[in-house]
């Protein structure tokens, strides 16, 4: 996988795509094999080292947003900076960076709102701002539109495309072929194996999906 790529991971439930995602996201370690991230072998790292990698190099966008309730949008976006082990980011700077990130996802007017005061699409945009705020090497999006209505889905996907256009590397897990097809490359996972890892957009995954 190259810098600046936009990759979609597809596959039916239980196919192993979540495991792949967890390993890629440094939440889990592979039982065998190696995983090079930015040239670093992360497959043998300790929990603390993995935590540092996740903090510095990865950004996560979840299907269920995973914002902390009762914290403002700004505070939610500031969370990753709280866990920066390399440098202590002063609160004022962290706030400024959070505001900038929220502005970049179009939530300038909502920085002090709590998650329950925001729509689903807006919540996901807060989550995207949170994923961006530490300038990660890779952004992982796990079914980012799974919990959203179609209008919000389109907006979120547009936002992801814009991030890609601006140079971000994006890995997205999805069920929907229409969404997967928007990616530059589709990886198809089935029964724990990567069946297709190319630019062919008519992968077996898609056929299955369309038959069903």
């Amino acid at each position: 996988m190259e810098k600046g790529e936009f990759v979609a991971i597809m596959g039916p439930s239980g196919s192993g795509k979540s495991t792949l995602m967890n390993i890629l996201g440094c939440l889990d370690r592979p039982t065998s094999g190696t995983y090079l991230l930015d040239g670093e072998d992360v497959s043998q790292m300790s929990k603390n080292e993995l935590a540092a990698i996740r903090n510095r190099k990865l950004g996560f966008i979840f299907q269920s947003f995973n914002l902390l309730p009762r914290l403002s949008a700004k505070s939610n976006v500031m969370l990753p900076m709280l866990y920066n082990q390399e440098q202590d980011i002063p609160t004022a700077e962290a706030e400024a960076r959070a505001v900038t990130a929220l502005e970049s996802v179009g939530l300038k007017e909502r920085i002090n709102h709590q998650p329950n005061q925001l729509s689903g699409g807006q919540q996901q945009r807060v989550a995207i701002a949170r994923a961006l705020v530490n300038n990660p090497s890779v952004i992982f999006a796990d079914e980012p539109t799974g919990n959203l209505d179609s209008k919000s889905s389109v907006e979120i996907l547009e936002l992801i495309h814009r991030l890609h256009a601006e140079g971000a590397t994006i890995v997205m897990v999805t069920h929907e072929p229409r969404i997967a097809q928007q990616a530059g490359r589709v990886i198809c996972v089935m029964d724990g194996l990567i069946l297709d890892n190319g630019n062919n957009k008519n992968t077996p995954c898609m056929e299955k999906r369309e038959e069903a």
Binding site: G25, A51, R54, N84
Partner: peptide, 16 residues
């Protein structure tokens, strides 16, 4: 639990 999981995903170490 979810909050803890999220904090870990965002880079919180077990010690944190």
């Amino acid at each position: 639990t979810r909050e803890i999981g999220l904090r870990q995903a965002l880079g919180a170490r077990p010690t944190d």
